[in-house]
Amino acid sequence: MCNTCGCTITPGNRPLVLAETPKHGVTTVTVLQNLLSQNNHQADHNRAHFDAHQVLVINLMSSPGSGKTALLEATIKRLRDSLSIAVIEGDLETENDAQRIRAQGVPAYQITTGTACHLDAHLVHQALHHLSLENLDLVFIENVGNLVCPASFDLGHHRNVVLLSVTEGDDKPAKYPVMFRAADLLLISKTDLLPFLDDFSVEKAEQNQHNLANTAPVLAISAKDGAGLDAWIAWLHAEIAQHKARLQNQQTTQPKVHQDTGLPSVAEVKPKFYPVSKPAAPR
C-alpha cells in the first residue's frame, strides 16, 4: 500500500475520505493504514522464517474444550512415523496441553498468555526462539480456545483449521462469522457424541458455514473413535505437498483471513530468510 495514489481507497472507505472537510487550525492527514499493520508485519516475518525451513504451519482455532488437543494427540499417533511434527500451545495458564503433546513424543512449546485471549504474531515469534524448526514437516499452533479474538490475528501460519464440536450447537458459524469465515478447513468434532444429541445437525452447520460464502471443505471427525481421521490426514498430506510445490515456485501459502484484510494487498512474496534463533544458513 502506498498512501499516495489512492490505491488504498476502497468502496467501503471512499465516502469517509471524501467527507473530510478542513477545520480551522486542524490539518487532516489521510492515513488509511491497517490497524493490525504491526502484527501483520511480524506475521510476514514469521511466515518467511517458516518457509525458509519448508515447514507447513497450521493454526488450530475453536472454543475451549472442542477437542483441539485430543485431535492433535490422535493426529500425532498416526503421523509421527512418517512426518516430523512440533506443536506450539497457547493457553492462559498451565503446561497441561504441552505435556499431553510431549507424551506423544513430539516437541511442544507452551505459550502462557496470562490474561490475553488470543495468540498474536509477536507471541509466536518469541516461541520460535524455543523451538527448533530444523527438519520439521508440520507445525501446529493450538490457539487459545476462543471463537472471537484469534480470528483477527495473522500468526504467520499457512492454514486455519477451525473445530466445531457437536455439543456447541450447529449455529456457531452464524454466531461467530469472523471466525468461521477464516476457516480453510472446518472440522466438526466429537461426532461420537452425535447419538446422544438431538439438536445438532451436521447439514445445518454446513449450511451456516456455506452462508458465510466460505467454500472450504467440512469434515466430520471423532478423535475418540477415529471416524473421519483418514480424510483429515489426507487433507494434511495434500496441504504439505501443495505448500512445498508453492515454495518451489517462490510462493507461499496464505491463510484465508490474511487474503482480504480490508486494504488492497500489494505484498509480494519475499522468500527471504529472517533469522529468529540462529544466523541464516546459506541457502
Partner: peptide, 8 residues
C-alpha cells in the same frame, strides 16, 4: 476494514 482512516 480495520483502518486508521485519518487524523486531525
Amino acid at each position: 476494514q480495520l483502518i486508521l482512516a485519518s487524523i486531525g
